[in-house]
Amino acid sequence: IGSLMYASIFGNVSAIIQRLYSGTARYHTQMLRVREFIRFHQIPNPLRQRLEEYFQHAWSYTNGIDMNAVLKGFPECLQADICLHLNRSLLQHCKPFRGATKGCLRALAMKFKTTHAPPGDTLVHAGDLLTALYFISRGSIEILRGDVVVAILGKNDIFGEPLNLYARPGKSNGDVRALTYCDLHKIHRDDLLEVLDMYPEFSDHFWSSLEITFNLRDTNMIPGSPGSTELEGGFSRQRKRKLSFRRRTDKDTEQPGEVSALGPGRAGAGPSSRGRPGGPWGESPSSGPSSPESSEDEGPGRSSSPLRLVPFSSPRPPGEPPGGEPLMEDCEKSSDTCNPLSGAFSGVSNIFSFWGDSRGRQYQELPRCPAPTPSLLNIPLSSPGRRPRGDVESRLDALQRQLNRLETRLSADMATVLQLLQRQMTLVPPAYSAVTTPGPGPTSTSPLLPVSPLPTLTLDSLSQVSQFMACEELPPGAPELPQEGPTRRLSLPGQLGALTSQPLHRHGSDPG
């Protein structure tokens, strides 16, 4: 009997000691992992102490058991019943959930998450997105703005933001810190809205009876308010094209079509300037034949640059190039080494500058006005007194259609001029006259002087055409309008007829 009692007592005591040691061994194993994590990542002392304290409290609170892992091991129907039991206190005593059906309560219970916070733990920081609604079931918390405590909340209090009033989550206007050990039930806004969409009859009752104890939403960050730039940057990543407008005076608003859609830094370009900076079609017209890549860069430059609305530039004389043409100036200075066709295309550029300027006046029909002061630039669209967005969009579309028509007509005119030049060069190729044979009589004449090349004649003739079109064909006081194609086609051969009437002889060394 004594040996039996000794064996039973010894066996029970050893089993008890073994169970104690097993729990202690698990605790030390998990604690060792936490300390190894702290050492590996070199976490500083204040945060390291918070980690160790939280682990110790969580171990004593749950005995080292992962409740979520245990809950996920059950089937979904059983999980709903378990969640309904775990959140029964909240669902029974909170006013917004009263009167809900059994199915609605089960769906809500599945969406709730339980959070346990030790003292000093910050649940929400200032500036964080308010993605959830919090219900306090135990403990107390404090809300701070800077170093000032603005509120202390306790059991059955609710904090967050009214989700039904805002389409997008706002930002917190303060820090939420736990004063004691707290148990909180939180539900994400997407989950709550999903359940309320499934039960629309409960939705009206819920929003009407929901009383948020403390609204954390920062009202200064609401979209459309003066301080909402940061919020707009976070939620409006896919922005449309940006529009900046110059201020319109009362006198300017009476004149229709007073602005032109141009790229940034293009205030001095012609009315047909689009795409790359520098001139019509993204580059100076005089350098068009020598740089074919300008047409390839036109599309990307047009689509990537934001639109700006600026006044037209001052008018340019008909014979003056659009500006920024070092290529043609070098050719004029060193005409001995340049291609003979460069002079002809220089005359073509003069005609283009004249036609572009006159067509700009035809479509816009307003006098040039000086540029406004820099303080009046970049007025935002949302400022008071601005035109409605639809009106601005319609004006932009009208300007775009005008620019497209202008570009089409300029292309047709350019093709006409090039065809005339090619026809003239085919009839009378460039050549130098040879020395004529002296006559049989004693009164022999001296050799004839060489005839100037055709490109120079073409430049003079085209300059005469531009001056003739600019000065004589337009009646005084009438708006400057571009001439039609047949009129220009008839004027060019008439001007060139006198020049080509002389018999030109080919030089023996000319390969053409």
Rank of each mutant, 00 (worst) to 15 (best):
L399Q: 02
P486Y: 15
L144M: 09
F214C: 08
L165W: 11
E230I: 13
I136M: 03
V148I: 07
L481S: 05
L192T: 03
P438D: 10
R302N: 15
Q467K: 11
S342L: 05
R423Y: 05
S203V: 11
L129H: 12
G324T: 15
G288W: 15
A415N: 09
P311M: 12
P455A: 10
F468P: 06
G439N: 15
E194P: 03
H188I: 04
S501I: 12
R389L: 06
G170R: 01
L210M: 11
P318V: 12
P169R: 03
G494M: 05
F354Y: 07
N339M: 08
K240Y: 12
G154F: 04
V428Y: 09
P321M: 06
R308I: 07
R316I: 15
D183P: 01
V176T: 03
S358F: 15
C369Y: 10
A498V: 12
L418S: 03
N404Q: 13
P479M: 11
E232S: 11
V195N: 01
A167W: 06
P453S: 10
L243V: 10
L399N: 01
L427C: 05
F214V: 07
L462Q: 12
T229H: 08
A267H: 09
I351R: 10
R401K: 11
L376W: 11
N173S: 13
M198T: 11
K251F: 13
S305H: 01
L210F: 14
L243G: 11
T337R: 09
P453E: 08
P264F: 09
E332R: 09
S260Q: 11
L499K: 09
E161V: 03
T426M: 11
T213Y: 01
G257S: 11
G477N: 12
E393C: 15
A178L: 02
S383N: 15
P476M: 08
P372I: 09
P340W: 07
L454W: 08
P440Y: 11
G170E: 01
R506K: 11
P318A: 15
V150P: 01
P455G: 09
Q238V: 10
D183K: 13
R247H: 08
M469W: 15
F468G: 10
L457M: 07
S444G: 08
F206N: 03
A132V: 05
R247Q: 10
R145M: 09
G234L: 11
S244C: 10
P384R: 10
L420M: 06
E258R: 08
S509Q: 06
L396G: 06
S382H: 11
P503V: 06
G323H: 04
E320H: 15
Y134I: 03
G356P: 09
V392D: 03
G512V: 15
K251D: 13
S466C: 08
G282V: 13
G268Y: 11
R395D: 03
T249D: 07
A178P: 03
G356L: 06
G508L: 11
L179I: 08
A132K: 10
R405N: 01
S353W: 03
Q422P: 06
S463F: 10
T458E: 12
G347I: 11
E407K: 05
L309C: 12
L410A: 03
P370C: 12
S208Q: 15
S346V: 10
Q362A: 12
P482I: 10
S466A: 11
N215L: 02
P493A: 05
S284M: 05
A478S: 14
F352S: 05
T219I: 13
L457Q: 09
A398Y: 05
A398N: 10
E393R: 11
Q502G: 11
P256D: 11
I187P: 01
T445A: 08
C369T: 10
D191T: 03
G512H: 12
P374H: 09
S284Y: 03
S452R: 10
G233C: 12
F235D: 13
Q400F: 05
D183N: 04
N156S: 09
V348N: 05
V150F: 06
P447N: 14
R359Y: 04
A344L: 08
D397N: 05
R395S: 12
L192R: 02
E230Y: 07
T373M: 09
S172H: 01
G265K: 10
L420S: 06
L403S: 05
L366W: 12
Q502Y: 10
L179Q: 09
V428M: 01
P372L: 09
G265H: 11
P511D: 04
S140E: 09
E258L: 10
I158W: 11
P311C: 14
P315W: 15
S287C: 13
P322H: 15
C182P: 02
T249K: 07
G441N: 04
R386V: 13
L133H: 01
G263H: 12
G512N: 08
T213E: 03
S286Q: 13
A269W: 08
A498L: 10
E211D: 09
L231V: 11
G288A: 13
G360I: 13
A498Y: 11
R274I: 03
S225I: 09
D157M: 06
T131C: 08
P455K: 12
P321W: 06
H205V: 10
P388H: 15
L492M: 06
N404G: 08
C471R: 14
H507Q: 07
R359H: 06
T445L: 07
R405F: 03
L243W: 14
T445S: 10
M414T: 13
P438N: 13
S225Y: 06
T445Y: 14
L492K: 09
S225H: 10
R217W: 01
G441S: 08
L262A: 12
E211W: 02
E230W: 13
V435Y: 09
L144W: 12
G268N: 10
V150K: 03
V428E: 05
L130N: 04
L193K: 08
H185Y: 04
S382R: 15
L193V: 09
G494W: 13
E329R: 14
P442Q: 12
R274K: 08
R423G: 07
T436N: 10
E194M: 10
G477K: 08
S208K: 09
F159W: 01
L462A: 12
P226S: 13
S446A: 09
G227L: 13
Y134F: 07
P223L: 08
G356Y: 13
A470M: 09
R423H: 10
R387E: 09
P503C: 13
A434R: 14
L399K: 01
S273T: 12
N156I: 02
P479N: 10
N404S: 13
R361A: 08
P311H: 03
V392R: 09
A151C: 08
G288C: 12
F202Y: 10
R241L: 09
L504Y: 08
P300E: 07
S342Y: 11
Q483D: 15
F352K: 04
S225N: 12
P285G: 06
P430L: 11
T180H: 03
L406Q: 04
L192P: 03
R359I: 12
N215M: 02
Q467S: 12
Q495H: 06
F354N: 13
T458D: 09
H205E: 08
P162Q: 06
E161N: 01
H507T: 12
L399F: 10
G139Y: 03
V417Y: 05
T408S: 11
K155A: 11
L231M: 07
T219P: 12
R247V: 11
Q483P: 08
V465Q: 12
N156K: 07
